[in-house]
Design a protein around this nucleic acid. Sequence first.
DNA 1: GTACACTACATACC
DNA 2: ACTGGTATGTAGTGTAC
Length: 816
Amino acid sequence: MEIKFIPIEYDYFDWQGRNYARIIGRDDNGKRVLVIDSFEPFLYAILKPNLTEKQIEKLKEKIEKIEIKSSSRTTKIEKIKVEEKNFLSKRVKALKIYITNYKDAHQVADKLDLPEIQARRGYDLSFHTKYIIERALVPLSWYKIDGEILNNSEEFGGIDSAYDVDICIKAENIEKIEKNIDFKPKIIAFDIETEEFDIGKGEILMISLAGENFKKVLTWKKCSESPDFVECFKDEEEMLEAFIENVKKLEPDILVGYFSDGFDLPYLRARAEKHKIKLNIGLDNSQPVFARGRVPKGSVSGIVHIDIFRFIETVYSQYLQSETLGLNEVATELLGEGKKEFEFKHSSKIKQHEWPEFFQYNLQDSILTYKLAEKFWPDMQEFCKILQEPLFEITRDSMSQHVENYLIHNLEKYNEIVEKRPIHDEIGERMAREKYEGAFVFQPKPGLHENLAMFDFTSMYGSVIVTYNLSKATLTEDKKDSYEVQLQKQKAHFSKKPGFFPLMLKEIIEKRKQLKQKYKTDPSPINKARSNAYKLLANASYGYLGFFGARYYCVEAAAAAAALSRKSIHETIDMINKEGYEVIYSDTDSIAFLMKNNSKKQTLEFLKSINSKLPGIMELELEDFYKRGIWVSKRASESGAKKKYALIDEKGKMKIRGFETVRRDWCTLARELQSKVLELILKEGNERAALELVKKTIKELKERKVTREQIMIRTQLKKPISEYKSITPHVIAAQKMRELGLPVNIGMLIEYFIAETRESKKLVREKVKLPDEKGEYNLKYYLEHQIIPAVENILEVFQINIKEISDGSRQKKLFS
DNA sequence: GTACACTACATACC
DNA sequence: ACTGGTATGTAGTGTAC
């Protein structure tokens, strides 16, 4: 029997002491398929050089005797092959040691601590990673699977009847289908509303579900006269059972939630436990399982549970404007649609007519979550294909893990044996290391400029790593045929023979470039997602080199990448200045300069000539031309502030960096005022109008016409309240919230304002009030600590001293 | 009692 | 613990005088 199959979810099981991969997916008719497959698990023992044939034979004999016994199985050495491999780009002889059960690989490795063996590798990859590499069954790609159909079979203890699938097949032959078959997974989003915030503490009031042409709210609360999507149940227990039933009936490939790893799924599990019922939504009737982690990872057997918040957080948050990653803000930005309004209160206080509103609210959360999952589907799909890891992993892995997965799944092309994960002590040492010197930032002069241009290097660090062949494997003591880099104390050398890490990165950068071009002519979501995935990988590769948890960690390479980038940007700055321009700012990989008497055409020609001289794959591009730009001084001194500037292009679009306008921990009043001031100055060159606006705002502030919303300050709580050594205003606000029984969680944005106080309280934190507290805003604070600081340095560029104007001799004239 | 240096903390840039 | 370093700026804290 042969079927067409797309793998979605991976797991494995043991049968008679051996491992079997168990993959859930669909066939080309949309039938749910369970594939059972196996491979011969193995690990490598890298031999010390110059062992004789005889010594190797003796060693093999010794190894063959290894046995790992446990209550359920015995792992033996199945066979041993001698192979010529590469390890960190060096030619090595290695024993490929096949074992009965991969779970015992670690223990086998422990027993291989022998004098003839230089290193043991390839035993610390997860089962599914090893399986995907060996059988080349990449997630979300199509395959032809030849095999035996199991139907009420005794094989594997009757596994086919244990799983709720349409087809169960034991794979014999797997072949990739190159032609793309359209595939759309069945996605169901879910969301719960509860009485309490702590997991399992209160009752679940309702559960919503949403999919394509599907919406439902399950509840046991007041639901007479409710919309037709509401289904009522006797109690919480019955509602939970209905949830299970719905999931089973809907047969989703994907169950998606928003922060559901940390809230919805564990909550459901906890309440089910409380009622002593099984939340058996798995295809094998198993309950969700939670893997340890900073946030637990909730998995459902046979269905991919995705917490779309996690994927958005690690992969896309850097591109979002949203100041928090809450569902409302993220959905509003990405979908143009937010959450429904509903004022939370204890269910006993919700009036009869308010319940339908609450149901709508609950449903809307699932609808938004569903739409987000749909929107990010191309991205998730491309991540799976490029990184060759399952959906569950790619939606939860960190950027460093993504980089590493790309490396691991592409090592075979280089005949490389995988490096091991650092052990505890190594991680400690790496974390304790000194920082190396990073990027160069140009010291700007405060001032307003006209006619500017900005160049920047494309994927600068990545290009440098490729151009100078920087990596752990290419780091060498050999000074011949190598690139020499001066680091802080010593010199480092990197072989000129291309290593696998720079070669893979080169491919990533090239693919990104091609896809970016392709996207211009064919702007499909798939092309965008693919292009973006490569861009993210290219950007994260440099950081990976210096990350303590990396298998291919190499500070020398990271430090060299930074050093060579500094060299490159300095040389480019010099070239630009020599050509008759004036460089006024630069940060890491970008250079802003004044056009002087040069035309745009000349500038583009000049750019071409720079590019012809740049080494390797280094490439400089035009970021844009700008009509005006402003740099300001630091608060504490006369010198120009780095990482803080505002530009306006010829279409009138502003680019604001570093200013309070873009900082979420400043109040809206100050941020909006500053933004308008910058706009008046950049758009119209009218600093007088800007000054008038500032005066007007100060006047309104003094007349207490400013709304509460405008003066709220938001600061993130980054750790538990008790761990703060320094009790800052937001910590006080968080304390107040906790006393009121409001939820206070790590990562939350704490909102407060600074109020007038009767006594002469000195510290800011003594004047902190929560949004709902009574009180007037503290005039002095908002004037001196918000408004004035936000505009002071900008107006100073025009020799306007707003502080003097505000409280100086003209005070009367101004505020009378 | 206050000025000042230093530390803790949050957030941004690239 | 879950990519790197560079930088600004506020508020609290400790100490000298």
